[in-house]
Design a protein around this nucleic acid. Structure first.
Lengths: 194, 194
DNA sequence: GTCTATAATGGGATAGAC
DNA sequence: GTCTATCCCATTATAGAC
């Protein structure tokens, strides 16, 4: 693998673990097995490297949202089930991703410009809810926040949940598997008319 | 107000905004209207100051959890309604609190040792669900994660939600007010037997 | 308790050889 | 492209006067 790619790869990891200001250029260089000067050669400065990593990680985070939230031609039930399944799986592979992104968005105010399809998809969800006799007329942003938040929260709050005793009766892994089953049920019963 | 208290007060603000490693001792000193050396006099070093602020903020975050989740003698419906109401109100007053705490817990691994009542309260919630014919037998940690996550997520993910278009049709404030009404409905329909 | 002044180090950045 | 060496400012930390 070429050096540039290698640097980006380890930078992604370290930035996620320690945040932008907690990360040292030296540490990235060491982990990548190159000299610090090379980071500046490729990315000009810390900010340049960080930005490249950040937009990359934003894309990575949005991908499953795009893919799994709005597969047309499927009934809402299946789409919610698929979404919860797919999103939790994807978060399992990148457990630090959301905490990192949301933290950085809040601290520095980094730009966040998602592709418009996602926002539009949420609006569209509202239209569907209105048209379907089976469901309550819920503001789609409320629904989306509930679904996404319920999937994401275990990852963001993992240390807190463990402190509260989550792992006394199960493992985190089992908790997530159970969650994939139970969450769609709760949500669906929650938004159906009866 | 004495200097020590003043320092802690501004440190709470600044640490929440910029995170531990993003915060400069100088900035805290300036904001408190004292000299930098005084911070070291009272708190020994940055870590000492941070720790004191952090445990303080942890307590602040847990307080509404303790107060509002487990008021005995009330039917579950009312307790959930009260909890959502009270917790969202409390988060409105400290919108950065959760992002900060969860971020720092994940980056540094800060100790997180909540008072045992909260964990026990969650277990107890499970017992109640089992005893009550009206509700499904749901793992209480799944339920708690869903409720807490749904309240908290809008605050943690605010920049993201705004990027997705949340504020195109309402203000964040209105969104929260609506949320207080709608969330208990979704949750309750979600866990009731029919 | 609070300040000024300064030490000590950390860490981002660059020049220049190879 | 990649390295060594070095610069230099930012930031933490301390000594010592008041």
């Amino acid at each position: 693998m070429d050096s540039r790619e290698k640097i980006l790869e380890v930078a992604r990891d370290i930035f996620q673990k320690k945040g932008k200001s907690g990360t040292r250029m030296q540490e990235i260089a060491d982990a990548a097995g190159v000299n610090k000067a090379l980071l500046h050669y490729y990315f000009k400065n810390k900010d340049g490297l960080f930005k490249e990593v950040f937009v990359d990680l934003i894309r990575k985070m949005l991908l499953p949202l795009k893919q799994q939230m709005f597969q047309k031609n499927l009934p809402l039930e299946d789409r919610i089930q698929n979404f919860v399944d797919g999103y939790i799986n994807s978060l399992k592979e990148n457990p630090l991703l959301l905490t990192f992104i949301l933290g950085e968005l809040s601290m520095n105010n980094m730009p966040f410009v998602p592709p418009p399809e996602i926002g539009e998809g949420i609006i569209q969800l509202g239209v569907e809810l209105k048209e379907d006799e089976e469901f309550k007329h819920i503001d789609p942003f409320q629904l989306a926040t509930t679904i996404i938040g319920s999937c994401v929260f275990p990852f963001i709050a993992r240390p807190m949940l463990i402190g509260l005793g989550l792992e006394k009766s199960t493992t985190f892994e089992e908790f997530l598997e159970e969650r994939k089953k139970i969450l769609p049920q709760i949500i669906l019963s929650g938004i159906k008319i009866k």
